[in-house]
């Protein structure tokens, strides 16, 4: 399919990208293009101007920042998988990244694009929410930090303002695991479950169980009250709104969430 006509500019820096976005309210950032371009080709999305930040290599990094790990927004999924720092301190990010799409997707797609796109089936979105990550955005009025819990506001919606560029993602050092149920090897999650131990507390997140990535608060509370993994997991679908679509029904997703949460907790 062929997208509707659009203009294209390549940004040489974040500030330039911010300025270019200011030119047109229908302008959009282009990172790895692996979510945006498919939607443009189906004409679900019709940006008037694409501001390409795909070559801002100074936003591709994973660094230790005191007790946290800082990840540049343009870091590709494949880089997350290979990164030794993440392997040591926050292995579930690479574990989840390795389950995204196929090799082509993993070599083009970026962590920033993944969360900014706001797809409720995004694996990394769930991970960031589970870890209580912080997202750093830069806009015309400078930089601000958004907690993950405040970032995801709806399907394909987030807290970023039009001219804001996501630059960095900060996660705590944490042990965790990610389980993803897929129909096919390269599928989006029918249901995904992240479980991590953050500051001594077990936190659980869900993919494809509602309009945004979700936290399984009742599971977390049950665990905090001393419930066994199996008993806690029975609450996995509480307060969720799993969709019914061509991939699965809502009830099957609710069932999967329970099985996968139990398994993730047992693995933790």
């Amino acid at each position: 399919m062929i997208p509707a006509a659009f203009e294209y500019e390549r940004a040489g820096s974040v500030d330039e990208a911010v300025a270019l976005l200011g030119r047109d309210e229908d302008a959009k950032l282009l990172a790895g293009g692996h979510s945006l371009i498919p939607t443009m080709r189906l004409r679900f999305s019709r940006p008037s101007l694409l501001v390409d930040i795909g070559r801002l290599d100074d936003l591709r990094y994973v660094r230790e920042n005191r007790d946290r790990i800082a990840i540049g927004a343009l870091t590709r999924h494949a880089e997350l998988i290979r990164d030794p720092m993440l392997r040591e301190h926050c292995a579930l990010i690479g574990e989840a990244a390795a389950l995204i799409g196929d090799p082509q997707v993993r070599h083009r797609g970026t962590i920033g694009g993944s969360v900014a796109h706001g797809d409720p089936a995004s694996d990394l979105g769930t991970i960031l929410l589970t870890l209580d990550a912080e997202l750093v955005a830069r806009g015309p009025r400078g930089e601000r930090t958004i907690p993950a819990a405040a970032f995801f506001s709806g399907p394909f919606e987030n807290a970023l303002e039009h001219q804001e560029v996501l630059t960095e993602i900060r996660v705590p050092k944490a042990a965790g695991t990610y389980l993803k149920y897929v129909r096919r090897a390269h599928d989006w999650a029918t249901v995904g479950v992240a479980a991590a131990r953050v500051d001594g507390r077990v936190q659980v997140g869900l993919t494809s169980m509602g309009p945004t990535p979700l936290r399984a608060r009742s599971v977390e509370d049950a665990l905090a009250d001393g419930a066994s993994p199996a008993d806690a997991a029975a609450h996995a679908a509480d307060d969720t709104m799993p969709p019914t679509d061509a991939t699965a029904s809502s009830e099957y997703r609710a069932h999967l969430a329970q099985v996968l949460v139990r398994r993730a907790l047992e693995r933790l």
Binding site: L42, D102, R183, R184, A185, H186, D187, D245, A246, T247
Partner: peptide, 16 residues
């Protein structure tokens, strides 16, 4: 059609 793209239509690949 609910399966008009390969996102919904579960055409397998060699990986499966």
């Amino acid at each position: 059609p609910l399966t008009g793209t390969f996102v919904g239509y579960a055409f397998p690949s060699s990986a499966d």
